[in-house]
Amino acid sequence: MALLFEQLLNGLQYGVMLFLMAAGLTLVFGIMNLVNLAHGSLYMVGAYLAVTATQWTGNYLLGVALGLAGTLVVGMAVEVIALRTLYERDHLDQVLATFGLILFFNELIAIVWGRAPLYSSLPPWLQGHIKLFAGSTYPVYRAAVIVVGLLVAALLWYVVTRTRLGMLIRAGASNRTMVGALGVNIKLLYTVVFGCGAALAGLAGLMAGPIYAVQPGMGELILIQVFVVIVIGGIGSIRGALVGAIIVGVVDTLGRAFLKPLLGTMIPPTAAEAAGPALASMLIYLLMAVVLAVKPAGLFANR
């Protein structure tokens, strides 16, 4: 029971990180109609910058802040240099060009930091465990990731629905020519939105650092799961991204933790030993297929 609860929290923690990635990707898609495969690279850049900045300054929070700011700048630079010309192109061109960017970023990171994984250290106040109920404990850091993720989700909701910037974003998503005609600097708006999406990816990456390994190519693994999140949630919908991310996070985590023992009760243990991990890693894709069969445009499609 305690184990189930802990795994549920782990699922939520992973889901929250997926959400940070999915939110940026879906915002960029919704407003600029751009498919950005290199979103995973920004996740990686955030993780590397934060680790390096923390080592540099010796202060974790300062490192995080520098990592976020750095990813924001990198994101805006990528938008201005490479992606701006692609908005009017079809999705195929966007996919191909951003695929090229992934190769570039992975290799660049390998040149600067090497191919070996980096391990990031946490300050003392983020180490240790907090007590839950009945003697079960949970790592402080993972709990902090959940809290930060949910706070960012709330902030994002506030910005998109209650501020002028959010109004422009929503307007841009439904009719960008009109927004431009009304005198809004649409180029600047795009760069800002892309930068914010990049910073969200960077935040996910730097929070992932202490939990998973920081290495070249780390962005791709999560990126494809983020695609599953977006397909399940519905493209362009932040609400869908949140729901999809938590579903995928929880299903994936629980599947990896409990599918093997569960199968073991039904089929011979040796067969379960082989089938369990295979099925667990396929689970979210099967889930995606089911969702698509029932709701082809995702759970919260708004276009």
Partner: peptide, 30 residues
């Protein structure tokens, strides 16, 4: 499954299913 969808959905779905097979390959220890 995927041809029912179009545009960007089709791209993501074909990618996701292939990734599923990739993980299947990784988990086939035999």
């Amino acid at each position: 499954v995927s041809i029912r969808a179009s545009g960007i959905y089709f791209i993501m779905i074909t990618l996701a299913f292939t990734q599923m097979l990739y993980y299947l390959g990784i988990s086939l220890d035999v």
